[in-house]
Nucleic acid binder design. Structure first.
Lengths: 240, 240
DNA sequence: AATTGACCAGTTTTGCATTTTTGGTCATAT
DNA sequence: ATATGACCAAAAATGCAAAACTGGTCAATT
């Protein structure tokens, strides 16, 4: 009973994995600005030129690393939701999300768009987050969930999106901050937040687990389609 | 049945109020760095020299403005808690806090230590927040509440402080972000957070309202004592 | 006694030339 | 095919002097 792979994980060669791992280590320690391509090559134990056999540029490497982390996170998250009988409920979705964050530390960086780590990369006008229109996606997400009956329809999607943002931020912060020894109280806090989200956002009649799963499935499919289209458009633009 | 004034509001002359108001307006619009003393004088309709008849320096003005806002906020907050039969319960304390934030917009700036508004002021090594040791105070606060039985004693005060921080941040964000027309859903969200705080942090036996009020009263008294001591020490240092 | 605004010293900003670093390439080697 | 690292152009960091700004003062004024 394995979780279905709605978003295929990126095809990664042994070499690319090596480079990704080295980059992730250095990124965590020194951040984007202070991590040079030469550093990455040295950390990975290969030559600088070798990196350019696999990646078009430093930014291409960074972005594919972020995408790699996101896809891994998504697949694991959805797997956890599928395995959980109540996984489609909003509160539980967040609970499962938190469980999976630990396995992909870069996810916290992505979610928080961490300035300390991403540095000047965030200032580039065509950066990953601008290109993927993080803001717009969120509204769509909420609107779809409302249309499907998983979120009360009398709430302004903007407000709901903001609340989800805030809660995500808080959970990521907790996941980063609270040491493992403190798990029991953390767990209680997380459950509290999850409960709150469930009560505040779910319609009275309650959204059943299947609805949540269906929406998530659809969302991922759309996201993948958009993503591929954007990548192709990007590639096409670079050729001209 | 008026609320007792545990922290006396600052003694402010007509002129100082005029300057405070002008400063607050400009601070909100342009922030600390781009608000010059000349600007403030112009906005207040007085001369630059007149400002120095009331304040030792620009920073003295800013700090006394922040203190003014905090004292006003504290007095109003405590008043709201006193007037509320359940005001001593942690969740309700937060609810009451939120109600009062609207009346003192600068409070949001203070709570978030807003870099966009406070700018370089925050970088000064002897800034308001460093001087008043915001971090230390918070731990004391939690420890006192735990000692008094208002917060479960099996939780690490550091974790609890962090959670309260996060919740405060979230509530302030909501208060700042959500437009007035959206009050109904906002209200529900706030109640959700308040409930969560109550459930997660209050001991099973429950802290009664009086306990909360007593702790708050004590805290304010201590804060005032510390504050005056710090101010005197500061003044003494500047004479030498 | 209260207020003003020209004035000043110290700081910040700007413009620019020089040096250093870094992303990316490619002739050469394996 | 795959990989290397010396090499280069572009970008970033550094140093510095001139110009502009700003916090704070104080002799003159009301």
């Amino acid at each position: 009973m394995t979780a279905p792979n709605l978003l295929a994980t990126q095809n990664i060669s042994e070499r690319e994995k090596l480079i990704f791992d080295a980059t992730e280590r250095l990124l965590g320690k020194f951040g984007y600005d202070k991590t040079t391509v030469a550093d990455i090559a040295k950390e990975a134990g290969i030559s600088k030129g070798a990196i350019y056999l696999h990646f078009k540029s430093k930014d291409d490497l960074i972005e594919r690393l972020l995408i790699h982390a996101m896809l891994g996170f998504s697949a694991n998250w959805f797997g956890a939701i599928e395995a959980d009988p109540q996984g489609g409920l909003i509160g539980n979705m967040y609970l499962n999300m938190l469980k999976v964050i630990d396995q992909t530390p870069l996810m916290a960086v992505i979610m928080r768009q961490d300035g300390a780590i991403l540095g000047n990369y965030l200032k580039k006008k065509d950066n990953f987050f601008v290109k993927n229109q993080r803001q717009g996606m969120r509204h769509e997400f909420v609107a779809m969930m409302q249309a499907a009956g998983a979120i009360r329809q009398d709430l302004d999607p903007k407000v709901v999106a903001h609340i989800m943002d805030m809660i995500s931020f808080g959970m990521v912060t907790i996941a980063e901050f609270v040491p493992t020894e403190q798990i029991p109280p953390t767990d209680e806090v997380i459950k509290g937040i999850a409960d709150f989200m469930h009560r505040a956002l779910t319609p009275e009649q309650g959204a059943d687990s299947e609805t949540g799963k269906r929406i998530l499935r659809q969302l991922y499919a759309e996201a993948q389609k958009d993503f591929l289209a954007a990548q192709q458009a990007d590639a096409a633009q670079k050729e001209s």
